[in-house]
Design a protein around this nucleic acid. Structure first.
Lengths: 203, 203
DNA sequence: GTGAACTATCTAACCAGTTAGTTATAAACT
DNA sequence: AGTTTATAACTAACTGGTTAGATAGTTCAC
């Protein structure tokens, strides 16, 4: 039987509505009343469950961040694989990129959880460091920064450039994998055979 | 002698103040009263000179965009050069990246001027297309998207990752140039000698 | 019947945009 | 050269709608 009063379910509805609202309008542009309406919940419940607008935003970002890190696992030994997986996730969840952009603009302070997650990733990369292109030229963090930038390059393309880029997603993913493969496998052996694969490994 | 009443100067002061305010807080988060105060101008003048808040934002973005395209010229035959020049500009003008991020989030519609600028760039790239790595794999737009993403990778790094990336700017620029060089010159010949140069060609 | 879930209504602050008026400047006139 | 006139530059104060958050009360589940 479906409960008419279920705090947990209401909480979840609010969080979902807030994710959409913040993704669309950011922290300053979001309207608490709109969130309440979309969640079919009373506004006061938002304050009861989440404190205030800023706290709610933080929770939304944190949840989005957690889901991302849970669904796309970091594979330091195969960065092209990681890059394409990240690309796929971002393509499937367009709000994630927007939410992250808002977060970086409006709440630049990183949480401890976020910092810890990056430390884990960096540790993993450091362990297999030698495999990256020009050894010692790149710090693990640099490598990660590039991989993230490339994975988000197509999703983050400005509107005005969009008509000129590869339209279909398969192609885009192949390019992401190819670029990262070239950079990691680097200079001489089989440069871009990675470009051919990828079409069959979507989640 | 300094004019006490100079509409052009006042206009310029307002535009400068608005650039800072919008860069810091975005369209929704910016406060017209704060802009007026920072510009030492009366609020009504802002409306007299620029219409409304949205129009003022558009003017600010447009001006920033024009300045960028004026100061860093696109060189389709040497994308590594272009990438490092873009990197330098973004490093020197941190507000530009923020402003562009706000624009993409809050005003996604591209202006005609912007679209035209991209068409020019794409045309230039098309003319020298064969020089890019795996021929025909990449559309010119894809190439540009990657170059832009790489050039902005370090400046756009999230706070939490920042402790793990190369700290000094020389190094970062060298990496930008190196990555693009590897991708353009591509797979086999002298892979990353481009990494060594760059420290002496700042504007 | 008791506590948790929920609601309708209120409020104080905020903020984009307006208005009605004041002052500086420079050209026109005598 | 001094006075008037026109206008552009500027200002202080206000308005009306909006919005985050609070409060006091109602309803449901167990």
């Amino acid at each position: 039987m479906v409960a008419t009063r279920d705090a947990e379910a209401t909480r979840a509805r609010i969080l979902a509505a807030a994710t959409a609202e913040f993704g669309a309008h950011g922290l300053a542009g979001a309207r608490v009343d709109r969130i309440a309406a979309a969640a079919a919940a009373n506004k006061a419940l938002i304050y009861a469950y989440f404190g205030n607008k800023d706290d709610l935003f933080d929770r939304v970002v944190e949840a989005s961040f957690e889901q991302l890190h849970a669904e796309v696992t970091f594979t330091p030994h195969d960065l092209a694989e990681y890059g394409t997986a990240l690309f796929d996730y971002l393509a499937d969840h367009p709000d994630v990129l927007r939410l992250d952009a808002w977060r970086r603009l409006e709440r630049p302070v990183a949480t401890d959880a976020e910092r810890a997650a990056y430390v884990d990733i960096i540790d993993g990369l450091t362990a297999v460091r030698s495999s990256f292109g020009s050894n010692d030229q790149f710090l693990p963090g640099d490598v990660l920064a590039i991989v993230i930038a490339v994975a988000g390059a197509w999703a983050g393309t400005p509107d005005a450039l969009r008509p000129h880029i590869s339209a279909d997603r398969e192609r885009q993913r192949a390019l992401v994998g190819g670029v990262i493969a070239v950079l990691t496998k680097s200079q001489h052996h089989q440069p871009h055979e990675h470009i051919e694969r990828g079409a069959d490994e979507r989640r």
